[in-house]
Design a protein around this nucleic acid. Sequence first.
DNA 1: CATCGGACCTGTTAGC
DNA 2: TGCTAACAGGTCCGAT
Length: 271
Amino acid sequence: MPELPEVETTRRGLAPLLEGRRITGVTLRRPDLRWPIPEAIVRQLPGQRIDTVARRAKYLLLHTGAGSALWHLGMSGVMRVLPTTSPVGAHDHVDVGLDDGRVLRFTDPRRFGCLLWQAPGMLHPRLAGLGPEPLSTDFSGATLFTASRGRAASIKTLLMDQAVVVGVGNIYAAEALFEAGIRPTTPAGRLGHQRCERLAKAVKRILGNAIERGGTTLRDFLNADGLPGYFAQELFVYGREGELCKVCGTRLESMRLGQRATTWCPRCQRA
DNA sequence: CATCGGACCTGTTAGC
DNA sequence: TGCTAACAGGTCCGAT
């Protein structure tokens, strides 16, 4: 379900409920999600205290003294803290029991999410190849410029490449490109310094704004309290195929780019 | 190496 | 109204 703002919103909701809690037990209702769930999750976690709830890219990390649980929500994952008595649904795959009598429950109908284990002091291979965090100073117009040299792929595809910058999914890529006035199909390598700068700023502003609003861009997003977002962030292009540009009134154009629906304003966004 | 297409799943929605 | 097909917030992997 999430892009980075939704994952960060989930993290902020979970942290105060989980940090300092001791894990009383782990229940797996199936052996795998996207990948097999490592035995360490069941063997090592019980009895551990959750030190911190962190985020790297779209992964949530529950750090304990024995190691860290890495959680990815995939397309449809939701993590919530619920009363132990709350009824178990068809797609409630994992429960982590807490010493306050509640349970951290992972729900994921499509099972594109995953739950992995990272031993102390190790960096999980899935995290090793990730690019900079978009909201950090490690990501900038300059790093985007460098990363895009010699790349024939479209700038939208490049923006969604987690080795270039993490956390930018289909919605926010489209919106950032609109804000920066860049057509999604533009070959990444053709962008100059200035447009890279504008684009990096747009990414930061849009993601930051979505986080401030509680990651509410996705229509069926549920935060850590199980409450829906209020769909607050205004979308200029995503999901508006065939409609008129909110800025100039031109009819928006669409195509599939890298297997993903892509919409842009032919007037506001230049190649 | 970069790039592309297919794959993984189920639920919802658009279209006939 | 009911059925079917297309599509959905992600990312990995193998082939080219």
